[in-house]
Nucleic acid binder design. Structure first.
Lengths: 342, 342
DNA sequence: TTGTACGCGTTATCAC
DNA sequence: GTGATAACGCGTACAA
């Protein structure tokens, strides 16, 4: 009933007084109820309710020297792809009492002293990297002891981090092969930034499929862009104004695929009859494009939740030598790809 | 050079020893450098570098009984509208050393013990509400002392919170009036959930404009939907199959406007000649719709940054009696609205 | 089984 | 201008 503290919150001392026991007993009751007689346990539990006690996490974390907070580094928070991944992370984190901090690194390679400070000052216990690199300089000596990390979505073998990802090469192969089965030969490809490893794999998958047919890979059909709507549109303009334009374009994410279709329609082409487009990601939006986009479906929520599980394994010291986790991604066939006219 | 601690991090004691002063002096040097002689200041600063000291924020926050963390409650993290608002919040927060925690309440009214616990356990210093309500039961006595809060984007007079918002009524009036000036009389309106106050204002603005013409407001032209693409599409289908369908639709957010255009095209209508559509929000996507969407542009980043500034005023006790902050929103004219054919 | 006593790293309040 | 010292709330050896 009483709250002694001037700050308004009941402390463990208040509970102890109310229950007529010591704070040690209160602490034990809350941490290891089995180490306390059922009598005192009941007394304490009643006292907790009476004084309205809640553990003061600030001091608990301080005492344990852990923050119960995870930093999620995301390349671009406004990219709808990541929001569902974040939900997956958050979901698992919450179950274990972890909070997540979202660090938007805005596709920058380095952000000096922005995130590293959180680590140095002990404000985070671990990190989930949604991009392909650690966005700060981790080379100096005193910064060596980085917290546990996992990588999700992206893939960087050199960093030797536990990783959750899909098989980008195979998925990309499947998408390209699907276009081939429809009868396409002149299949172009719009990929993303060179410094994103997953682009490398998606490109390889594309090339592997193209080589299967016995043809050579036409380098002029491979355009490097930036994963944006605008970038996809620009690249498409270039492709469609070539002397021998492609009959199909495989874009390495949905946003560029939407940009590609937008541009093609702008140039007066009828879709999908005059041009087939396939994307990658399966954004919610993509089912509502005109025509609905055929794309690779990524299990975004699961990518996030699996990543957090791997991180928890490290934090709680269960299975330290967990490797990577490979998730399935299926081709989702809609209407944006059809057999070519000619 | 030395790090005494077993955890690997240098503490203030280490600095004090290295500099030959007391921890009190070290603390003062870092907090109030002017209260220390320049001699000792230099000694201390050198020692800080030597031992590689960084403040241990966990204990600092514990000592000060503040978390330097803000909870941002967002109705739906995957809604692209909010990501830029969050960036605005984050930007200002970071300047003052605050972290932000993102709480996705998934449009639920109440989430028992999900967020309230963060408050009770002193893990947040303040809140920014991006929805129209406090998503937990704050009625019980011990939960009365809620931390400082501000509301952004939405507007709930009863809660008497400092609020950052645009003039939804006027903006909505302007959008409707614009359609009228183009020559439209049969203007329908697709609005959002009844429990969102901003819908009320947008609806009033629409009605005010409609009444201006001397006509009565046709209630069958007002459809209540859910701010989603799908919802906008469904509502549009209903409108367009009416005996006397509207020649223009004003949607109370962009996502529904995109859904409306999608549906209209599906039904074989040519846009914008057969149907004009105006949205509300100016999402990045909206400029790439076909036709590009005419809409109300909300200053999302500024909504966020202003909200955080109001919150800081409360946290730092500057101007406690700050009221609301009204930001401008302009009509962005693109191509989705034109004069009606007939 | 329970209580005493101490420490976590920092800051605030005193003296000097 | 500076240095002891006492908190902050919790968890846990250790003693009883």
């Amino acid at each position: 009933m009483e709250q002694r503290n001037d700050s308004g919150a009941a402390t463990m001392k208040d509970v102890a007084d109310a229950a007529g026991v010591s704070t040690a007993t209160v602490s034990r009751t809350l941490m290891n109820p089995e180490k306390v007689s059922s009598q005192t346990r009941q007394k304490v539990e009643q006292a907790v309710l009476d004084v309205g006690y809640f553990p003061h996490n600030l001091s608990r974390n301080f005492k344990r020297n852990e923050s119960k907070t995870i930093l999620v580094i995301v390349p671009d928070i406004s990219d709808p792809f990541f929001s569902e991944v974040i939900c997956g992370i958050e979901n698992v984190a919450a179950q274990e009492g972890y909070l997540i901090l979202i660090g938007d690194c805005k596709h920058q390679q380095k952000q000096e002293h922005a995130f590293i400070n959180l680590i140095i000052t002990k404000q985070i216990d671990g990190m989930v990297l949604l991009g392909s690199n650690i966005p700060f300089d981790a080379s100096t000596e005193e910064q060596k002891n980085l917290p546990p990390m996992v990588m999700a979505n992206e893939f960087t073998p050199e960093l030797k981090l536990p990783t959750v990802h899909i098989d980008n090469l195979t998925s990309s192969f499947n998408a390209t092969h699907y276009l081939q089965k429809l009868g396409h030969r002149r299949i172009a490809c719009i990929t993303g930034p060179e410094d994103m490893p997953l682009c490398k794999y998606r490109l390889e998958g594309y090339k592997k499929a193209m080589l299967r047919t016995g043809d050579k890979v036409r380098e002029d059909y491979i355009i490097r862009s930036d994963f944006s709507h605008e970038g996809g549109a620009k690249a498409t303009k270039r492709l469609l104004t070539m002397p021998e334009p492609p009959t199909a374009i495989f874009c390495h994410n949905d946003m560029m695929a939407l940009g590609a279709m937008w541009q093609a329609k702008r140039m007066g082409l009828k879709l999908p009859s005059a041009l087939s487009v396939v994307g990658f990601d399966n954004l919610k939006l993509s089912q509502y494009s005109d025509p609905p986009l055929t794309t690779i479906g990524q299990p975004r929520f699961e990518i996030g939740s699996q990543a957090m599980k791997l991180l928890l394994d490290q934090l709680q010291g269960h299975n330290i030598n967990v490797g990577s986790c490979l998730l399935d991604a299926d081709l989702i066939i809609r209407e944006s790809a059809q057999a070519p006219k000619s």
